[in-house]
Write a protein that binds this DNA or RNA. Structure first.
Lengths: 193, 193
DNA sequence: GGGTGGTATATCGAGCCGATACATCGGAGC
DNA sequence: GCTCCGATGTATCGGCTCGATATACCACCC
């Protein structure tokens, strides 16, 4: 499954331009799939070449013209074939966890800073992006509610884990944190290593 | 953060060949980062070219020779610089959720089949891959335990969600599933739609 | 003898990502 | 009026990654 399939899926509901497809992805797929213009425009070109979509230039007032794409019958057939035939993957690529894996090579403050940044990002996605989707919950299909609920469940679990672990990391990495600075160069052999 | 950084990180602990790096990634990073030979070998070549690792050919008995890489001081410095400077991303790319998002375009049995396949895969990762890591828990750094625990938490939450949702999907998509086949053409108006 | 599978290096094409370029317009600020 | 910023809109380029494939050697088993 590639960006071509994704575009077909979005166009299955409503005609759209490349720019509007990107907007739709950002609103609705943000927490589980991303695609930039560098993927979308070539995908639409290829879909048009193979007859799965047709394109119509639409002039607009006070705005640049846009090229609106519409899915064809062949496109709908191909979309369903792909979704039925390919077994879908679920891939996590987390530089965040890589960094945590190598945390022992880094200053402690960097590690807590990264945990806090990740917490803030997850929190924003959960409480802004997904919350906006809840507003249109009534208009969603069961499958779309499933995808939304999955995102909510994962983000909630992740935030809980980050919250529980952060304290432990602070104690483990900065045992002298709460100690008077004057004491830091004495007493603790482990502090120098 | 790219595969070069990942290789540097693995080599920071122990000298390894490209093949061994891949094995290490499969054992320890499987649930949050993947890289194939098509990424690893060019990465090692580039790291050697820029002096961040050195390479030594090692002959072996009854096996093909291997090229073992060792990180240099410059490599260690670069690794830390990269991990400190870049803000790490956490990306989910789920064809599974895309398929669920478009579930209304598909036969019901395909949807439940995909949910079951995903459940089986998550279950395997949690109970085989991560369980194997628990065996060496004592040898892990705090950061490595963090990454392991994160994976366990996410997989457990995902499995719970899939379990809770699957029943609802079955009822929604196949309301006559448990009904005597003889009754399917009578009685239930909703069944024909 | 032949098939399978593990060890090992390497490359190729296709696809994707992020940055960038270019163009038009509305509105904010001075 | 002038300038800058941001939204709308299309498009491409270099670099990186992915998955498949090729090659080779050996152990093991039937």
């Amino acid at each position: 499954m590639d960006v071509k399939t994704l575009c077909l899926g979005v166009l299955a509901t409503e005609d759209r331009s490349g720019y509007e497809i990107k907007k739709t992805l950002e609103e609705r797929f943000r927490h589980f799939f991303r695609a930039g213009y560098g993927s979308i425009y070539p995908a639409l070109k290829e879909l048009e070449r193979s007859g799965l979509v047709v394109c119509e230039a639409v002039e607009q007032q006070r705005r640049p013209a846009k090229k609106v794409y519409r899915i064809t019958d062949a496109g709908r057939r191909t979309l369903e074939e792909v979704l039925v035939a390919e077994d879908p993957r679920h891939v996590v690529r987390s530089e965040f966890l890589v960094l945590m894996y190598f945390a022992h090579l880094l200053p402690a403050e960097r590690v807590t800073q990264v945990i806090d940044a990740m917490t803030a990002e997850f929190d924003r996605i959960l409480n802004a992006d997904l919350e906006a989707l809840e507003q249109v919950y009534d208009t969603l299909t069961p499958g779309q509610r499933f995808a939304l609920g999955y995102g909510r469940t994962m983000l909630t679990a992740a935030l809980g884990y980050l919250h529980r672990q952060r304290g432990g990391f602070l104690r483990e990495l900065q045992p002298t944190e709460a100690v008077d600075p004057e004491l830091r160069n004495g007493g603790l052999a482990a502090a120098g290593d």
